[in-house]
Write a protein that binds this DNA or RNA. Structure first.
Lengths: 146, 146
DNA sequence: GGTAAGCCTGTACCCGAGTACCGGATGCAA
DNA sequence: TTGCATCCGGTACTCGGGTACAGGCTTACC
């Protein structure tokens, strides 16, 4: 009947205490056992799950996506509906697109630094400015989300 | 006394009408002239400023940073306090760090796809999993902000 | 049994960058 | 002068991922 208390789990996973309950509300973390007085008692696996969540977030998945991932992983009996495999591939493509996008941005910044321009508005008026105002903005409006 | 109306400016810059007023509130866009009835009448430069804002955002600057940039650019008389030059260099470093970070993420995802792992939680338990749960999470907690 | 630390629920707030909606006033052309 | 499009200010809401606080109960140790 013993288990880890919430603060132990939070500390072990390097996560705020409130975050545990937030994840529970969001359905990412299963509701744990309770003590007689109502305190949460987590199994040791909870720490693993938290680490997995954090790693997945770091890999670019949103909490909703992580929830789905954990969900399909859990009761994957028979048919497999676009599991980790497919989603990882898709996410990889997203990340690669974002890298490409940031590389455009980096080279633009580099050009701006090298050209020595120092006043954006003044610069934008004349064609000597290396910053492609027209083309840079509509580039990838949602490549920035996530 | 004539000038562009707000919707004309918004359309020309490819921006929502509300965004104009939002930028005005945030101090990014100077308060324009008004008609007798109180309608805003913008000079043509406003469109340029908006495009600059959008480009700068795209380059990774936050609206606060853009505001500062426009501010220092405006009344730069005598001393120059870390102008576009310095900030661009710093931002370039940030962007490069972010690219490096995303490359780690991409290669991790690639490894996960190649290893064919399909259940994060089960995988995390055994050492065959290519995902470095311990090291990936605390990698760069703020490289993700912006 | 006392006391302090820890945990409970619920609610509200934070960040950044907008967007939406409301009732009322204005601009402009016919 | 009438009518419709546009604009006004103000407020509230969105999204994603948490964080903070208040007031009260539980647990653990002495």
């Amino acid at each position: 009947m013993t288990g880890l208390r919430s603060s132990q789990v939070a500390d072990a996973a390097g996560v705020n205490l409130q975050t545990l309950r937030y994840y529970e509300r969001r359905g990412l973390l299963a509701e744990p056992e309770r003590s007689l007085g109502g305190h949460r008692l987590y199994p040791a696996e909870a720490v693993t799950v938290l680490k997995v969540i954090k790693a997945a977030q770091r890999l670019g998945f949103t909490l909703d996506e992580v929830a789905e991932l954990l969900d399909t992983a859990g009761h994957r009996h028979g048919r497999r509906d676009a599991g980790l495999q497919e989603r990882s591939k898709a996410k990889l493509a997203e990340v690669e697109a974002k890298i490409a996008d940031l590389q455009v941005i980096a080279s633009t910044l580099r050009a701006a630094v090298e050209a020595g321009c120092d006043d954006l508005v003044a610069c934008a008026g004349r064609p000597c400015c290396p910053i492609p105002f027209a083309t840079i903005a509509p580039g990838a409006p949602d490549a920035d989300s996530r």
